[in-house]
Design a binder for these strands. Sequence first.
DNA 1: CTGTAATCGAGACGGTACGTCGGGTCTTCAA
DNA 2: TTGAAGACCCGACGTACCGTCTCGATTACAG
Lengths: 209, 209, 209, 209
Amino acid sequence: MHNGTSAKKTGRPRSADADHAILEATRAALVELGWGKLTMGDVATRAGVAKTTLYRRWAGKNELVVDAVAVLFDELELPDRGSLQADIEDVVLQFAALLALPEARTALMAVVAESTSDDALRQRIREAIVDRQKRLVVLGRRRAQERGELPPDEPQDPAGTDATTQIDLIFDVIAGAVVHRTLVSGEPVDPTWARTFTTLLLGGLAAIR
Amino acid sequence: MHNGTSAKKTGRPRSADADHAILEATRAALVELGWGKLTMGDVATRAGVAKTTLYRRWAGKNELVVDAVAVLFDELELPDRGSLQADIEDVVLQFAALLALPEARTALMAVVAESTSDDALRQRIREAIVDRQKRLVVLGRRRAQERGELPPDEPQDPAGTDATTQIDLIFDVIAGAVVHRTLVSGEPVDPTWARTFTTLLLGGLAAIR
Amino acid sequence: MHNGTSAKKTGRPRSADADHAILEATRAALVELGWGKLTMGDVATRAGVAKTTLYRRWAGKNELVVDAVAVLFDELELPDRGSLQADIEDVVLQFAALLALPEARTALMAVVAESTSDDALRQRIREAIVDRQKRLVVLGRRRAQERGELPPDEPQDPAGTDATTQIDLIFDVIAGAVVHRTLVSGEPVDPTWARTFTTLLLGGLAAIR
Amino acid sequence: MHNGTSAKKTGRPRSADADHAILEATRAALVELGWGKLTMGDVATRAGVAKTTLYRRWAGKNELVVDAVAVLFDELELPDRGSLQADIEDVVLQFAALLALPEARTALMAVVAESTSDDALRQRIREAIVDRQKRLVVLGRRRAQERGELPPDEPQDPAGTDATTQIDLIFDVIAGAVVHRTLVSGEPVDPTWARTFTTLLLGGLAAIR
DNA sequence: CTGTAATCGAGACGGTACGTCGGGTCTTCAA
DNA sequence: TTGAAGACCCGACGTACCGTCTCGATTACAG
């Protein structure tokens, strides 16, 4: 977040309402205008807040938008559907549904784009958005191991892949494929595609062990 | 490209040199400044061209950059390394190397980001960049079929996937995973990762048949 | 004029129609747009002529406008109304009527304004417009002398003014007063004002002898 | 001036320094560059001010220049030289000296030229420049009446002219003649000319009573 | 209850880039 | 050689946002 537990003793305290109003306004503006047309002044106006107030809390457009959309990604969940295949299909569809929201797709790509030339921003994105979703992979994998669908983690087999590498790979493949199909190829992620993709992924996982 | 075979009979013809100079200048500016700091005026100056000339050919920054970087992606090739596994690993590494170029990574993500709220731009990107690289998947797949590594296309098996669906899926998985690992996860795509990823992909392909 | 009797032997001859169309279009554009909004491109379009054609004949906006409006001032005449007072009143009203035409008032002031920092232009204005109207003063003065209303020119009386000085002074006073009242004060020059002004002028002329 | 006593309660107040710096810079730029080459951007730079600041106060070049030069005309004074003839000669020479300044001559004519097709501008000029100088005529006339050089204002004699008409006439004749001789005829206004002209004027004034 | 201090909305500030417009030149093809 | 068409370089336009700054007016907590 933008401010930690910094010590502030005296003076008028910051309005908590303002924070919510600003983030809400940011999301609304993203939907209507897209990243490129979104302006700080407009966000301030929508939030009924002065630009000063906005800049007192966030350093710029990037930081503001990251915070504004991060919360959306926290809503992803991994329900226990009984099998790994079903679990993955479910989360793939959830993720696709999220990327169907204009504010999410637009904001995600925009901040990622900015981050290609801004390491601090990349770090922030990773912390606020990306790494937090890895929990889904970790959780799903553990459940599958408990069900016996996947073998338990073992001391690294030189011919195989260790747990971290595997988790990262799964994450990149799932997130990458869904994002690419949705935003680049522009094709829908429907249950059929989700099933085929998941089948491919699980088939592949068996192969890398 | 920005102009088709429109009929223009009279008047001074447009300078072909200007086109090249502008696109070259755009790539140079992208490397030095990145997407965010790149300005139309600067590109014009670098190209030794008036801003008007630039706007006469491209509607804005997005369109210009798409054309400027499209050519970079055309350099990807699929050498025949003797096996499908080797072919894919090779092209994965080529793609990763391309995304390591600042002008390519920054420009690609930026225009994709803009395209989330601009259908015309998305269409342009797809034509100029994305669809043209599908040729690599098509070619690699045909070679593998000739080698017997993959079964020939058959009348659609209701339980399987038809050729087009499979090509699209492969494309989304490869491109998505490489882009995600490179630009979002921020981890390197090295030969080891390429091998593991390719193994997963081929294992998965066997599963969806 | 813009071209003298320059020798042109070969090639396609210049269109005489073009000249008229251009000057006519210039006057029309002046009326509608005023000096500041008048553009060479617009004049060319109105005249159904290419900009090239226009620049082949005139060096720029100033020269073009001077020629376009010069002809208007040539229409001033000094009818013989029987007395100097009546003659002056008549020409004052003619001049005022001319300055009531938007193309004349606007063009005259505009080129005079430009001429404050362009000696060549001032020279051109003086030749094309100003000096040609001095004929009216010279003629009126001679008629008055013939009628006996004014004394004949004499060898310079040290206490008086010689002929040239007097002509210049009369011209400046008449032209200046009419222009100032019309364009600066923004008051109308009607017969009453013309009579009072002429009375003042003639009374003054008697005093400087 | 450009802003009246408009009520503005909140927000940062406009910088008074900026106003002065801008007007000063405008005059300097007029001297160096003349009206035609003067640009808003250059004025802003000279004044150490952003273009926005400039446009926040003045609608355009015309309005700015009117205000910038208006102050020059306020420096004209009518010293009491003991006789009406001497007073007029003095102010005529002052006015001529003012018109010898490049910034004054060029700016005055340019804005008058623009005003021929812009009523709001004409109004502004009249308020800021023209009408304010009528004070000189009014003052000189009253002094002369006190000295007995001119008869006191009387209830309008049907055969004569009332006070306002006379003041306007005198103003148009003096200003018009000086401007015309200086800027159109391009001849100098020296003491000799001033004397002759003043003699004519006073002689004429006697005639219209 | 009275300071002190940080907050608030408002809006002016110095900048940078925008995309357009007009000036005057140059290049092509047709007459 | 002229003419229409239109692309060219150049420079200024007036606008939009940026992120900072100054205002006067609220709030809180501290003494």
